[in-house]
Design a protein around this nucleic acid. Structure first.
Lengths: 178, 178
DNA sequence: GTCGTAGCTTGCGGATTTCGCAGCAAGTTT
DNA sequence: AAACTTGCTGCGAAATCCGCAAGCTACGAC
């Protein structure tokens, strides 16, 4: 998806409002961004500190409007502006993906995992695992302890399979920026 | 705001000189952030737009020093400051984790995957998969095309197993913030 | 029709932040 | 020893952020 509505270099006559779709889709609770907010998000995916005025020039809004929309996007939790790092450079030398199978309801297990600071990522999946989680640890001992002592002992956890990371090849945050 | 020169600094940053290795640019294995830069990263993980002066106050450095260190961290690629979103709210309704097994060298396959914009995350693992990758697609058709037409046809790919995401339960970016 | 709401624009100041640069105090090299 | 490097501080100047106000348009409800 490129060129949402850029090219409106001169923001004067943006009055040619494109045919607004059903403006808001009250589907299952998802706010559903419009094209302009999407463009703002893309700008901030390139540089989370880009000034509002520069974003406004790029997407065809005033500085104040960009400011309001960014604030709203943050408040609504649609996006967050954060520093992301390579865990290896911050002292976490052992990472692993875990495939987990659960007896009965997934939610109690998922909630218990959510509470663990070493668990970075939890997703409920279809397929031969019920849950896939990513754990970030300082060293092998730490990883072993998390998996064997803290996760495999959770009630409901039937089995786990570990995939220890050898090398991270790609990691992007460019959702929506294709 | 004038400098409060009492204060005696929250962190005893002076002695934070760690035993430096003789080479200042180590291999990609351990760039090894010092404690102050780590604290800066943590500040920016909480809020990527936090002002340098506020960070400086928190970590015990001047505004200019923080600015220089942040710039260096960005230039070195140790961290990036970006907006991250929930893919679902940006129009990507189908995500999946793929476990891939490869014949022979992994790198050509990994490089081909890296070039695909739908592939968000690639890691080489130990365990019953050689590679685990995360794909982000717009819908089922898109996902099917990526998996069957683009990934499974790559030379060297022996087999794949898919784990379609049903629900994302946790996603944090707090590495180093424990 | 009127009314109210929501969102954008322009404009404005003042507070804050960013940015570049000149110094300075280490440590390292020659 | 001097010369160089690295990292920090301090300080102006420029840019940005932020709140606010008034006016405008589109749109939905009454």
């Amino acid at each position: 998806m490129h060129s949402v509505l850029v090219a409106s270099r001169s923001a004067e006559q943006r009055d040619s409002r494109e045919p607004r779709r059903d403006s808001k889709e009250p589907r299952n609770g998802t706010p559903q961004l419009d094209a302009v907010s999407l463009a703002i998000v893309q700008q901030l995916q390139e540089d989370g500190r880009r000034p509002y005025a520069a974003i406004g020039k790029a997407v065809g809004l005033s500085e104040a409007a960009v400011r309001q929309r960014v604030q709203k996007l943050l408040d609504q939790g649609v996006m967050q502006i954060v520093a992301v790092t390579d865990p290896l450079t911050v002292g976490f030398r052992r990472q692993a993906m875990l495939g987990i199978n659960v007896d009965g309801d997934l939610d109690p297990v998922a909630d218990a995992l959510t509470a663990m600071s070493e668990v970075e990522y939890i997703v409920i999946t279809a397929g031969s695992f019920d849950l896939m989680v990513e754990v970030v640890c300082e060293d092998d001992d730490h990883l072993l302890e998390v998996i064997n002592k803290r996760i495999r002992t959770l009630p409901g956890v039937r089995s786990t399979e570990s995939f220890v990371y050898l090398k991270l090849k790609k990691q992007t945050y460019m959702w929506g920026t294709r």
